[in-house]
Every structure is written in structure tokens, then in C-alpha cells.
């Protein structure tokens, strides 16, 4: 076996194996991403999906969490979400949020297995870059939620 063939064999095995694993991983483990209006339009019936939007209307901040996710383009469109997970630290209305799970057509809400809220650095940066402090608190020292 020539030297170049001797090197080509492991190269092909490693990168061929890599290509195969990536293709398999994407095919079997990929979850479609969607916007709220697509869920409202019934585009992903009975399929796991990750939905992006803005957090709104928190009905329950305790487990199970109950809130809505509002469409980023059309604020009129929203879906109710139920999520039996720990409340993230950055779980606040108007924040960017993504929920992963399935639409329950009978209960007419989205059952989320995972909730992704954004990290503080991103929130701070966006708030600074764009719509800076659109609503200031009506007073200082809003108290403990008791």
C-alpha cells in the first residue's frame, strides 16, 4: 500500500464517519423551528417543534408554568403554553423566549417540555440597542411578590 493511500484510508474513515453521523443526527434528532403564526395556522400538527416569540400573559409563574407566546411579527397572534419545568431566571413578559414541545389540539394549548429564555447579556444589549426602557416602572421599590 502506498504512503498516500495509507493516509487516505483513515482520513476517509474519519471524515466519512463524521458525515454519516451528522446526517443521521440531523435526520433523526432535528426539531423544526417555527413562529407562533405557523402554530396558529396548524402547520405542525402532532409534531415536536420549537416555537420562538415573546413571553406574555404569565398566568402561573409556579410549576406548571402557564403563559402565552406572542408572534414576533403579528402581536395579535399568540398561543397559550403549559410547561412543567423550573421557571428560568429571565422569565419575564416581553422577553424573547422559545418553547419546545407539541400542540395539544384537544386542550388547545402548547405543551412545552423545554423553555429557553435568553441570557442577561443579550437582554441588556438589545434593550440598550433598541427600544430603550419603553416603560419605566411607575415607582421605585416594587416589593416582594407576597
Amino acid at each position: 500500500m502506498s504512503k498516500s493511500v495509507r493516509l487516505a484510508v483513515p482520513f476517509l474513515l474519519i471524515f466519512g464517519g463524521l458525515a454519516g453521523l451528522v446526517a443521521m443526527g440531523v435526520a433523526q434528532g432535528g426539531v423544526p423551528e417555527a413562529q407562533v403564526h405557523q402554530i396558529v395556522a396548524g402547520e405542525f400538527p402532532d409534531r415536536e417543534v420549537k416555537v420562538h416569540g415573546f413571553l406574555a400573559a404569565i398566568e402561573s409563574a409556579e410549576r406548571p408554568l402557564r403563559f402565552s407566546v406572542v408572534d414576533k411579527e403579528n402581536p395579535e397572534l399568540r398561543i397559550p403554553v403549559v410547561c412543567d419545568r423550573t421557571r428560568p431566571d429571565t422569565f419575564q413578559e416581553t422577553y424573547d423566549v422559545a418553547v419546545q414541545g407539541r400542540w395539544d389540539p384537544e386542550a388547545k394549548h402548547f405543551v412545552a417540555d423545554q423553555i429557553f429564555s435568553k441570557c442577561p447579556s443579550k437582554y441588556e444589549a438589545e434593550s440598550k440597542a433598541g427600544q430603550t426602557m419603553p416603560q419605566l416602572a411607575s415607582d421605585v421599590g416594587v416589593g416582594q411578590p407576597e
Partner: peptide, 10 residues
Amino acid sequence: NPITLGVPVY
């Protein structure tokens, strides 16, 4: 066809 990949895929 946007696809997200989670920890299991990685």
C-alpha cells in the same frame, strides 16, 4: 426548513 439541534444530536 429551519431545524434546531439539541444536546442529544451533538
